[in-house]
């Protein structure tokens, strides 16, 4: 299998000058193409920080992150924005859709930034919203959708750019059981059928149960990394 993400000796210290807080204390992690991985651990264990660093949203104090063998730690801010646009999909806990755009336009947005043609955009939007079960709601704006539906649009948006992997930070934290189950079904299906790599942080046992691989963080360090036989 191909290694998509390689995290090497990542350390992250906040307030290094005054009262240092060590969010990550030397993390090594390798994610292969097609893996469905849950990053678990108590609050403050460093899950979100690690996801942000892998996603190029935050810089590590030490260590490096290689995406498809490219060291993103060396990229400038504007290069990182372009890199994220082309290679990384994001799903946020609070959905973070653009409120003034419809579901279709939200999914289309990243492809527009990539300069994709109208035909290509239309086809992909149709496929993706179909895959997340929202073919009927494409013209609705986020405030006309339930939380679960909004998060499914967010998943479709994350996949629109054909990223190398999708990072999801607590994607089910704001969802009820039914919506959580639906979302996990969709993510697992995309992972299984289209070999899409998912890395998500979660507290939610229902999500952890569905992961194929469970990486546990505590106090900024990985304390276990195991395969989950019953996942997905």
């Amino acid at each position: 299998m191909k290694e998509v993400i390689k995290v090497q000796a990542i350390k992250k210290t906040y307030n290094a000058e005054s009262i240092p807080v060590h969010a990550l204390r030397g993390v090594d992690l390798s994610i292969q193409q097609g893996e469905f991985t849950a990053l678990v651990g108590p609050s403050g264990s460093g899950k979100t920080t690690l996801l942000n660093i892998i996603g190029g949203l935050d810089a590590a104090t030490e260590g490096s992150v290689l995406i498809d063998q490219q060291n993103i730690s060396q990229l400038t801010d504007s290069q990182l924005i372009d890199f994220r646009k082309e290679h990384i999909g994001f799903v946020f806990q609070a959905y973070n859709l653009i409120p003034v755009l419809t579901a279709k336009e939200n999914v289309e947005f990243v492809m527009l930034l990539q300069g994709k043609s109208q035909a290509e955009r239309d086809a992909r939007v149709k496929d993706l919203l179909g895959a997340v079960g929202l073919s009927e709601q494409i013209d609705r704006r986020p405030n006309q959708l339930s939380g679960g539906q909004q998060q499914r649009v967010a998943v479709a948006r994350a996949l629109a750019s054909k990223p190398k992997f999708v990072l999801a930070d607590e994607p089910t934290a704001n969802l009820d059981s039914k919506s959580t189950a639906d979302l996990l079904d969709i993510m697992a299906k995309l992972n299984r059928e289209e070999n899409i790599t998912f890395l998500f942080s979660t507290h939610d046992q229902r999500v952890i149960d569905r992961a194929q691989r469970i990486v546990t963080l505590e106090d900024g360090a990985i304390i276990s990394d195991e395969q989950n036989a019953i996942g997905s």
Binding site: I81, D82, F90, I98, P99, L113
Partner: peptide
């Protein structure tokens, strides 16, 4: 603020 952060996170560059 959060929305603008998201736009930059998903790849909208600063000039846009």
């Amino acid at each position: 603020t959060r929305e603008l952060g998201m736009l930059m996170a998903v790849g909208m560059n600063r000039s846009k």
